[in-house]
Each structure stands twice: as structure tokens, then as C-alpha cells.
């Protein structure tokens, strides 16, 4: 990925049926190059046509949107799995989870990704 966060949603347009790009076994399209397309349109090079593509950085930024702070109305209550009620005291671990995503965990956050022995 080339750094800048990209939200490459393209306006819907009719797909011209005349042009068809046949891709071989996938080596022609190295992952990583696509986010450099200006505007992010991948039409005609993406197998299957236009796609709505988001990189990780952009998705993480959307996490801070105010709508994400309230749980979905029909979120089922599963003890130990979901926390649909927002009137819980802020000491609840589930509430801490809102702020402490794996991303901004103070200890071992960034490093843990690389020192994986499996």
C-alpha cells in the first residue's frame, strides 16, 4: 500500500460489454499496486468488474465515526460475547474495548505483529 488512505468507491456506471480483460493465474496483478490508482477505480482490471475497495487505514479511520459508538438496535444479548446495552458502567471490560482496540494497545501492540512464531 502506498501510504495514503484510499476510499476507492466508484460511482455505478454501466459496464461496457465489449471490453474484456482476461487475467492469467494472478501474477499480473500484484497486490499492493491497486491503491495507487487515482480515485481508486479498478474497473476492467479487477476480475469481476468494479469493486468497492478500502484499505486497512481507511477502515480504521471510519471506526471513529460517531455512529459506531451506539450498538446496533437488534444486537442480541449473548453473555460474554456482545454488550448491547450502553448504560453499563465505564469500568466494564467491553467498554474499555471501545477505546483499546488492538491497534492502540500500549504494550506489544505494534511489535506483536512481527514476532510471531507459530
Amino acid at each position: 500500500m502506498s501510504g495514503g488512505s484510499s476510499c476507492s468507491q466508484t460511482p455505478s456506471r454501466a459496464i461496457p460489454a465489449t471490453r474484456r480483460v482476461i487475467l492469467g493465474d494472478g501474477v499480473q496483478l500484484p497486490p499492493g499496486d491497486y491503491s495507487t490508482t487515482p480515485g481508486g477505480t479498478l474497473f476492467s482490471t479487477t476480475p469481476g468488474g468494479t469493486r468497492i475497495i478500502y484499505d486497512r487505514k481507511f477502515l480504521m479511520e471510519c471506526r471513529n465515526s460517531p455512529v459506531t459508538k451506539t450498538p446496533p438496535r437488534d444486537l442480541p444479548t449473548i453473555p460474554g460475547v456482545t454488550s448491547p446495552t450502553s448504560e453499563e458502567p465505564p469500568t466494564e471490560p467491553s467498554q474499555n474495548h471501545l477505546r483499546n482496540s488492538p491497534e492502540d494497545k500500549p504494550a506489544g501492540g505494534e511489535e506483536s505483529q512481527f514476532e510471531m512464531d507459530i
Binding site: 471510519c62 465515526s65 459506531t68 459508538k69 450498538p71 446496533p72 444486537l75 454488550s83 471490560p93 474495548h97
Partner: peptide, 12 residues
Amino acid sequence: VEQFWRFYSHMV
């Protein structure tokens, strides 16, 4: 994307 985060942020 926003609806995804609404679920994800309220799941352990």
C-alpha cells in the same frame, strides 16, 4: 463500514 464498526465495537 460504519455498520460493521457498530457491531464489532460491541462484541468482545
